[in-house]
């Protein structure tokens, strides 16, 4: 046996997986070859180091989330998920409740007084149909109320409007980056607004047949409009859609903040029944920047 033959067998030699004859030949070679002897020592040391890694405990939030998988009821697809995924979030929200109320007031002032704050990074064309007065105080509301960014004329706006009956994907799913700092109430207002603007946009059939296309568009827009790698969000988004357990499609994503922490705001429309049925329900998920930890959830 030469050194190369020995190299190929050292691993099995360590595991005592060689026949007596091969083992004798290696023993004999090792007595005369310090080079192979050194390799054996290094390999034994490496194996010992790997074995020293030990077993990791499963983080409590992951463990909790896993126990929610089988109980994710059809009628309340994400409600359970919220309860089970990250219980610590509820404490966070509860603990921040008082501060959040003050923050809402503060943000409302900021939003109304500084309408251009997010306009610089907003990429989606202005759209008609933004609820005035009672909509969420997000970019659309800011834009609508901004004296310097008046709403486009009806003719212009029509070019960009997703007409409910047209089932047109573009400009949906909408993706924007903003400086907005959401709290639960602002998220609920956003959900109501996006739900209104995407009413009858997609059917159960669309969700089944166009999910890949819609997600691809979403990923592409995340990359082009938020400066982050959209592909990183593919898996978390698919996970959200899968856990909805109904025909579902993403319609809105915003890179923003939630209680001053960086976040993604995701709105998913979902529904069930016949293929022509509309995705009549909508849910909002606020996740951390990785998309895997849930800060907030609501369904409409």
């Amino acid at each position: 046996m030469n050194c190369k033959d020995i190299n190929d067998l050292l691993s099995a030699y360590i595991d005592n997986e060689l026949g007596a004859d091969e083992k004798m030949q290696i023993d004999s070679h090792l007595r005369d070859c310090p080079h192979c002897g050194e390799k054996l020592t290094k390999m034994k040391s490496a194996v010992k180091m790997v074995r020293s890694l030990g077993e990791l405990e499963v983080p409590a939030d992951v463990s909790h989330a896993l126990r929610g998988i089988a109980h994710d009821e059809i009628d309340k697809p994400a409600q359970k998920r919220r309860m089970l995924l990250l219980p610590r979030v509820r404490y966070l929200i509860a603990a921040g409740a008082v501060a959040a109320i003050a923050l809402v007031a503060l943000l409302s002032q900021i939003d109304l007084s500084a309408p251009d704050k997010s306009a610089g990074v907003r990429q989606i064309p202005a759209e008609k149909g933004v609820p005035s007065g009672k909509g969420y105080s997000g970019p659309e509301a800011q834009r609508a109320e901004s004296p310097s960014q008046s709403a486009p004329a009806a003719g212009q706006a029509d070019l960009n409007v997703a007409k409910p009956s047209a089932k047109k994907i573009d400009p949906w799913p909408e993706v924007i980056a903003s400086q907005k700092n959401y709290d639960a109430k602002a998220a609920d207002r956003l959900l109501a607004d996006v739900k209104k603007r995407t009413e009858n946009l997609l059917t159960v059939n669309d969700a089944k047949n166009l999910r890949g296309q819609i997600t691809d568009t979403l990923i592409e827009r995340i990359s082009s409009k938020t400066g982050t790698n959209g592909e990183l969000m593919r898996s978390p988004i698919n996970s959200l859609l899968d856990q909805t357990k109904r025909s579902a499609a993403p319609v809105y994503m915003e890179k923003a903040k939630f209680n001053k922490q960086g976040c993604w705001v995701v709105v998913i429309r979902w529904g069930f029944g016949g293929v022509e049925n509309s995705l009549y329900r909508a849910s909002i998920y606020v996740t951390d920047p990785s998309g895997w930890s849930l800060f907030y959830y609501a369904s409409s």
């Binding site: 050292l10 290094k42 040391s45 490496a46 180091m49």
Partner: peptide, 10 residues
């Protein structure tokens, strides 16, 4: 794999 680890970890 072990040969590679041996070199990396030596």
């Amino acid at each position: 794999a072990r040969l590679k680890l041996a070199e990396k970890l030596a």
